[in-house]
Amino acid sequence: MTGVAGILDGVRFERARSLDEAVSRVGALVSSGEPFHVLAGGTDLVVESHLAPPSPVARPGRTILDISSVPELSKIEDRGDRIRFGGGVTYLTLRREPWASRIPLLARMARDVGAIQIQARGTLAGNIATASPAADGVCGLFPLDTLVGLRSASGERAVPLTEYFTGYKKTQRRPDELIAWVDVRVPARDAKWAWRKVGTRLAQAISKVALAAVIEIDKGIIQYARFGMASVAPVTVSLPSVRALLEGRGVDVDLAALDAAVDRDVAPIDDVRSTGDYRRHVARAVVRELTRSLTT
């Protein structure tokens, strides 16, 4: 297939029809050294390709490998206490039944991703692959004990999402690997969960700070407290100090200790969307608000 006139002249398009075909093609492209991009929902790739003409993406001689029609990637397997979403599952799918009631946190988060058009195209794997610390999708998966399934021609491995990101837009994924699936833990039926996105506006917004949380309480003791927080560090953070402070304790939390824990877990910066000071303040405030809601 030839490029779209004027925008993608000279770019080679290929469409993979199966996961095996996709990973073998990726492997071949990597070993040949040819520049290529993987296209899933396109909500990053298409946007980035318009950024700075001459576009870094749309250069003649490049290959765009379209994996949006790979059937395995849109599969969802419900295994009771865990669900395995194909990497190509979209945010719109997460908003729909039965997934919306199985994991309401993901459904609620998905509502805040871009707007309906982005939700219909954007995929879980795409958000993970782009590895932006502002990604709502990544943040929403963090509290769910999520495993990322990485597939290459030579096999498959699972990496915990909280360990997946190694630095700003750096991950454990090798160039010859595709994100085949994400495997998430279904929270207990009576689990408390929270999604709080503080964005630049109510839709089509990138998070200044976002908080995802799942908290399970048994007999007044917090048994499970997991978090994701976006846009407060070079990578999405899991707030380990906050988790350590809460797990195994009662719901009456010392707010000063909580603030201190948040401070240890975040390293926000000034950028075009907000300031480090504001982000730190908001990070504390949304975590405080969350713990307040546990007692009511």
Binding site: V47, T200, L202, A203
Partner: peptide
């Protein structure tokens, strides 16, 4: 347009 923020219909 992602960073120069104008209100959307939702706002």
């Amino acid at each position: 347009m992602t960073n120069y923020i104008v209100p959307t219909a939702v706002d």
